[in-house]
Amino acid sequence: MTVVIQMLINGILLGSVYALLGVGMSMIFGIVRLTNLAHGEFIIIGAYGSTLLSLALGVDPILTLVITVPVMFIAGVLIQTVLINRVMLQGSEPALLVTFGLSIILKDALLLLFTADARHANVPYSTATIRLPAGLHIAVLDLVVFAISLATILILTLFLRYTYMGRAIRATSDDTAAASLMGVSVRRTYGIAMGIAMATAAVAGLGVGMRWTFYPSSGGDYLLIAFGVVVIGGMGSIPGTLVAGLIFGLAQVIGGANYGMLISYLLLILMLAVRPQGLFSK
């Protein structure tokens, strides 16, 4: 029994990070109708940003978000408005292939810049645990990352629900032409959406860097987890994203180091075959 509860706890903690990995991709999928194959590399860029800045400045990695989030937001806006909006004129496939091109460029650029060495964002509490009754325990690090993930998703939800820009983003994802009749510039909204997606990737990168070691080539793994979260959660659905993250987290915890990924992939293929539109989309 204790083992099962411990697994559930670990699964939930892990699931929150997975949800964070997927939330930006889900937004772009739902709003811009684009599969951003570079999302994994965006996350790894965030991880490098936080790790290296915290080393250079000698501060807690969490504080580096003050720099990485705005920088990556601006980068996202630029990538969308300068590059992707232009190719979207030609249809969705060229846009998909452009993000694919971006992904391989970024991966090798990271390799050139930072070598193939494993990296990790160090925090003083990296080995601390909280002991609970009945032999259960929670790693402080996991709990911190859990809190960061949930806070990010909560802020995003509030933003989408209660601000003009958030409503404009939702309206654009429903009906682009009708949104433009309300005075919304679709291209600008796409730019902001990509900026936000990249800002969430910055936070997700911090989480990745704090919990695991990462390499320039790690982007692909996280992209597939993010995609899995999008598929199971349904595009653009935040509650769906949370549940999907949890499902993946549990699959990973149950499968362990050897079979966790395999189980996740099989789950994903099964999901795609049975409900290609996601569990939570209408």
Binding site: T35, G220, F227, V231, Y265, I269, L272, A273, P276
Partner: peptide
């Protein structure tokens, strides 16, 4: 399985299959 999906879903699903095989062969 794959023909139930369209566009981007198809594209990424084919990739996931390859990744699943890679993971499987690795162990």
């Amino acid at each position: 399985i794959l023909f139930r999906m369209r566009g981007m879903y198809f594209a990424v699903a084919t990739w996931v299959v390859a990744e699943a095989l890679r993971t499987f062969f690795t162990s």
